[in-house]
Amino acid sequence: MSDARPSLPRTAPDATAVAVARTALGDARAARELAQTLGLADLGTVQPSAVTQVPLLLLFDEVGLGLQVTGEGRYADRASGRAKGKPPGKGALPGPVRAEFVSGRMGYRREHGGGAGQLVARAVGLHKTKAPLTVVDATAGLGQDAFVLAGLGCQVTLLERNPLVHAVLADGLARAALNAECADTIARMTLVPRGSSIDWLRSQAPGSVDVVYLDPMFPHRDKSARVKKEMAVFRQVVGDDDDAVALLEAALAAARYRVVVKRPRKAPAIEGPEPATRLEGKSSRYDLYPLRALPPA
């Protein structure tokens, strides 16, 4: 997906591009605190389709926190800033993107997933060892792959440097921890305070982490591509990970057994050492960089 508008900074959100708000049933106190923490405007109670000040909201509703496009975000011309199509406030907007582990796609996957036979689990090596592995998900995003791995017994450390995504992920983990069916899995997931994954990995002793998992945002330029709602919002918020080479280098230094990199199926590998092997799915693949054999038990 191509978007003429620049992505938000990774270290601090752009106050002209995002604000905090809530629906009538959203948590007003949490909204005020998050706005203060991130240095963003708190718009109070809003109807997202009528918001024209910013294209994106950190929106608290009756479920929790999500990233919500606004009327401006849907109808503004990215290149010129002129409104086009329907005016703001007309028509339904897509719902918020949130970190959801209890219901929806992740809830179904939790109940009906393929266990250690899932592609991400095989990439990490869970079909080869019964030993509990420590995994660092250095590009955690909405935490979906980390949740799968934690559900299979891994202790997962999550790193996410984008402040908006980090806030949404923290909210999703907190809500899931209150659910009896998810609590044990969430207890194996630790979200590190926001910061650079590269710096965090470089601060670890060599070989101190069993597996490092990376899913850096790949520069995708196909204007005609139809992408999922989550990916469209992520490209708006995060942009491309132009430092993937340094991230892979830091991951290889910190990992004990292997580094796993998720890529679009036809994308080139990250520049640097060639992966030893690949596992391919329908739309994505996993590049494997083994460092030593996994423990048998």
Rank of each mutant, 00 (worst) to 15 (best):
H220A: 14
G113C: 12
A28K: 15
S103Q: 05
L133G: 06
T277Q: 11
R110K: 12
I270P: 03
M217F: 12
D240E: 07
D184K: 15
A170K: 14
E62P: 00
Q47M: 01
V51K: 09
N162Y: 10
V46W: 06
G71R: 14
A31M: 14
P96Y: 02
V63P: 04
G66E: 05
V63L: 07
P290G: 01
R29T: 11
M1P: 02
D287Q: 11
L169V: 15
A253V: 12
L38H: 04
E160D: 01
L173S: 04
D3N: 11
A116V: 15
E160K: 13
L57C: 03
F101S: 03
G172V: 10
L247S: 02
L126I: 07
G115P: 11
R98K: 10
S196F: 03
M217W: 12
V237H: 09
M217A: 13
E160L: 08
L164S: 06
S103M: 00
A79G: 13
S224Q: 05
L173M: 11
R175A: 05
A92E: 15
Y286P: 02
Y108L: 06
T139E: 07
E280Q: 14
R32I: 05
V136C: 13
K223I: 08
V259L: 13
A21G: 13
G151P: 09
P132A: 14
P13I: 00
R175V: 11
Y108K: 13
A232I: 13
V120N: 01
V238I: 09
V135N: 06
R10V: 07
G153P: 06
Q204M: 09
V124H: 02
M1A: 09
L291E: 01
A167F: 12
S80Q: 15
I186W: 04
V165C: 06
T23P: 12
R122T: 11
A297M: 08
A253K: 13
V54F: 08
G44I: 04
R292F: 00
A31Q: 15
P264N: 01
P9R: 05
V18I: 11
N179W: 06
A176M: 11
T45A: 15
G64C: 13
